[in-house]
């Protein structure tokens, strides 16, 4: 009987290993982040914070990357599933990216409430943590979704410079849970830690600002994504 349980555990491990396809989204978003660096060139007469030369271009770039990356990831997972013969569900991942994309809209709505809305990074993190617990405990979907949308929106509202990386992180957390890969979970955890460091210590106020000081907010998370993707490829 113990042998049977051992055999089943081996089967489970093999099935999980065979369906791992996480290097693609890591590399896609990592490379796309590095490609965004030129868009962080400072404005001619920069004021405070993230004052770039082409704000519209930067504003369009990230939503396009998030949508294209999400669709490409789903395509990649399906293609790999068809080739290997075992397919991972990507519905939750698409949902997470949609929540990440809806954040700025919800944030705008919160700003236009009839009363003053006070946001805070800690509040956003707590609501997102609650959403994660609700999701793992299979709470009613409407409650989980509301908490996830609200937590993400508050976090992005309070940390607009890394809003796109919050959306990517949300997608990676869901993918890591679906893949049940220790390596991918570790990479995702490293990414989230680096994102916090990046948000807290990025020298946006360096004077005079340069593309590198402005784009440094991108460098750390992008590096983790690319290194994680390459580590995943090597494993395969």
């Amino acid at each position: 009987m113990a042998d049977l349980l051992g055999d089943l555990a081996d089967l489970r491990r093999r099935a999980r290993a065979d369906r791992h396809a996480y290097p693609f989204p890591l590399l896609f978003f990592g490379v796309a982040s590095f490609l965004a660096l030129p868009l962080y060139a400072p404005a001619e007469a920069p004021s405070r914070g993230l004052d770039v030369r082409h704000p519209v271009l930067l504003g369009v770039y990230w939503p396009v990357v998030l949508v294209a990356g999400g669709l490409a990831t789903v395509w990649w997972y399906r293609r790999r599933g068809a080739r290997v013969g075992i397919e991972t569900s990507t519905r939750g991942y698409l949902g997470a990216l949609a929540i990440g994309l809806s954040g700025p809209v919800v944030g705008w709505a919160l700003d236009n409430l009839p009363f003053r809305f006070y946001s805070g990074t800690a509040a956003g993190l707590i609501v997102l943590a609650a959403a994660t617990v609700l999701w793992r405990r299979r709470a009613p979907r409407v409650v989980t979704l509301t908490a996830a949308v609200l937590g993400t929106a508050v976090l992005q509202h309070d940390q607009p410079v890394i809003a796109q990386f919050i959306a990517i992180g949300l997608g990676l957390v869901v993918l890591a849970a679906l893949e049940r890969s220790t390596r991918f979970t570790t990479i995702t955890a490293a990414y989230l830690v680096v994102l916090c460091v990046s948000a807290g210590f990025t020298p946006l106020e360096v004077s005079p600002p340069t593309t590198w000081s402005m784009g440094s907010v991108v460098l750390l998370p992008a590096s983790v994504l690319v290194i994680g993707g390459l580590a995943g490829l090597r494993r395969e």
Binding site: L8, L11, A15, D18, R19, V84, G85, I86, E87
Partner: peptide, 26 residues
């Protein structure tokens, strides 16, 4: 039954599993 338990175990790990994959794995 051992093989049916194997089929369910593998299928429970994914959205769907192809016949050929199950045949070679089991």
């Amino acid at each position: 039954q051992k093989h049916r338990l194997g089929i369910l175990t593998v299928a429970a790990e994914a959205k769907r599993v192809e016949f050929g994959y199950l045949r070679s794995t089991l």
